[in-house]
Design a binder for these strands. Sequence first.
RNA 1: GUGGGCGUAGCUCAGUUGGUUAGAGCGUCUGGUUGUGGCCCAGAAGGUCGUGGGUUCAAUCCCCAUCGCUCACCCCA
Length: 419
Amino acid sequence: MIKAIKGTKDLLPSNASRWHYLENIVKKIFVNFNYKEIRTPVFEETSLFARSIGEDTDIVEKEMYTFKDKGDNSLTLKPEMTAGVVRAFIEHSLGGQQPLNKLYYIAPMFRQERPQAGRLREFHQFGGEAIGSLSPLLDAELIQIAYDILKELGLKDLTVKINSLGVPESRENYKNLLREYLHDNKEKLSEESRKRFDTNILRVFDSKVESDQQLLKDAPLMIDHLDDESQNDFEMVKEYLNKIDVPFDIDSKLVRGLDYYTKTTFEIISSKVGSQSALLGGGRYDLLVEQLGGKPTPAVGFAAGIERILLACENENSFTLPEPAIDLYLIRLEKELETFVNELASKLRRENLSVDFDYLLRSVKAQMREANKLNARFALFIGGEEYEQGNINLKNMETGEQKIIPLNSIEEIIKQVKA
RNA sequence: GUGGGCGUAGCUCAGUUGGUUAGAGCGUCUGGUUGUGGCCCAGAAGGUCGUGGGUUCAAUCCCCAUCGCUCACCCCA
């Protein structure tokens, strides 16, 4: 038997409505904030991701689905969305058409990691990007959008974490401070942290090793060493979030794993999804557009994991959907009436009713059982005496009440069913 | 890449201290008189007991390997 690739999942009909529900909320809220949808290809030139996400990140180093096409070009299935959006932004000069572009997306992403709860190899993200402004209002706006979407989905167990990484210059200065601080104790760090000491020292903060955290206890913190502009922007982000009632925690150890972030970074976590607790993450990336060959353009964005969010919704039982139902089930009393039933169904469907009938020539009892299973609001009996007299029998499945109506009066059927 | 747990019907799971035809609930299908559902009742279909090898008179059960799923580390959404 051929099975789905490890780390991929089929979305079966029984689950599709939960996805639709989420997608509709996502679209609605982005539209309320006047964000426009953008779709980019699932694959891009490999170098795009290497240049934006960072050569030394885990994503680029070991998680990308990279392959050669027949023209010997190295292509990669997108592991995240921002790189593609920025590429499209530059390629189509979106910045030249209007100074600020507010964009959103819902799309599949691919990373070759070991699957576990809340982590798949093909997964889906929705997210937003505001490209073209330095205003911290947009940092706060995106956090609000993310938060509002999760709230609207009924999630309660949420923590918003924010931090600022500063501009590259202040970050470099800070890194030196941290390096100095840890220098004497470098040998006491865990192996992993020692590696990070050399490659990306900020990520030492991510260590879960107790002894590492002990060593870091009195370490200098980035937010105490921000440049004036970053400091000021961070204050404003906090102020705006307070004004729009988005509760948050400051997490000075929040470091995102993608290299392009500057200034504000944020994350929303839930304890209801196993060990992969981040439902979404994002931040500012003021240098990325220029870095990818565009004009210097500041930007901020976030990406949210749909599977993780739906997992949290399930575990919190945050929303329930009505059982699927149809308007009308047609019941054929005699096999010979199959074509007539089919025609009638077609006409009713064109009148915008959801209608179904039995294609398997099953017994009346079986048809009724089917109507019941489908949650049909009405059943329509076609055949026998009534049919000969030019009538059909419409039954309200809830009340059991039945009405004889003229065979050719589609209008009457519609009127009854829509009432 | 490293480590733990698990693989018996479509689904959730029993079971055999190795011994004839492997079970339940749910689901599916048919029926409980001529043309009517939900409840109830009766019956049926559906399993190479993940795969390969070994031990044994005999393996779904024991041993080995392998594949798959799953959780965690790591990383991230």
